[in-house]
């Protein structure tokens, strides 16, 4: 089966002053797959996402979305969820949804409301009164409620309790469809691996492993987490 390449990264390098965050990263992302961008803190995961989201500019190399160079236009294809809590504390949940609804043309307001109902996040509560698990869930719902082509979720499980983690993984798996790409960065490999199609191990800005999760398990008789531990043991 030939799948459409929606996001193509070629020889991407990003340097900050004297530090190299990404080095000659080449990755081809196909429609309909969930990708795990895996690596310890400081391995370049966030930098990679920010470049694709158009928030950072690469030092060299190219990023093509639907065969077009990154531009103001390509940002419309990408829904990016940063790892930090960027939500206004004094807003109620419902106000946040309304805000996104006016900010993004492709925001699916009813879809977001329904998702929040399903996972029991009360939309009348102020952001400052939400637990970190609820914040994590809300951020995920917001990112997934845009009708984008590429979803990039930076550490969606960080600082989130175990039950909320399950809810977030369910949200991601359920929202996935044949014409989307979902890229999830995390170092919590065991939690996430069952929903991944393809894994990318990023080690100090270099791609160490890029492959199908099931084939890796079969070849190495190990879980993705087991392989991860082998690759990063000395990191």
């Amino acid at each position: 089966m030939n799948k459409l390449s929606v996001l193509k990264i070629t020889d991407l390098t990003k340097r900050y002053y004297n530090k190299t965050a990404l080095e000659n990263v080449s990755l081809d992302f196909e429609q309909g797959k969930i990708y795990g961008l895996l690596g310890p803190n400081g391995s370049g995961k966030t930098t990679l996402m920010k470049v694709v989201a158009g928030l950072h500019k690469q030092t060299s190399g190219s990023v093509l979305i639907n065969d077009e160079m990154l531009s103001y236009k390509s940002k419309a294809y990408v829904s990016y969820m940063p790892t930090e809590n960027y939500l206004y504390e004094n807003f109620k949940v419902i106000d946040i949804l309304k805000y996104y609804n006016t900010m993004y043309e492709d925001f699916r307001y009813d879809y977001a409301v329904n998702l929040l109902n399903d996972i029991d996040v009360n939309s009348d509560i102020k952001i400052s009164n939400l637990s970190s698990g609820q914040i994590g869930k809300l951020k995920t719902v917001i990112a997934l409620s845009r009708d984008a082509q590429i979803y990039m979720l930076d550490e969606p499980l960080n600082g989130v309790d175990v039950l909320s983690r399950d809810t977030i993984l369910d949200l991601i798996a359920k929202s996935h469809s044949e014409n989307k790409i979902i890229i999830i960065s995390t170092h919590l490999v065991s939690e996430i691996e069952k929903i991944l199609d393809t894994v990318i191990f990023l080690k100090e800005g270099i791609v160490e492993v890029f492959g199908d999760a099931e084939e890796l398990r079969q070849e190495r008789q190990l879980s993705v987490e087991g392989i991860y531990k082998e690759v990063f043991r000395n990191a």
Binding site: K194, I195, E214
Partner: peptide, 9 residues
Amino acid sequence: NELGINFNT
């Protein structure tokens, strides 16, 4: 959805 895994699987 029932198994909590990816539909491609």
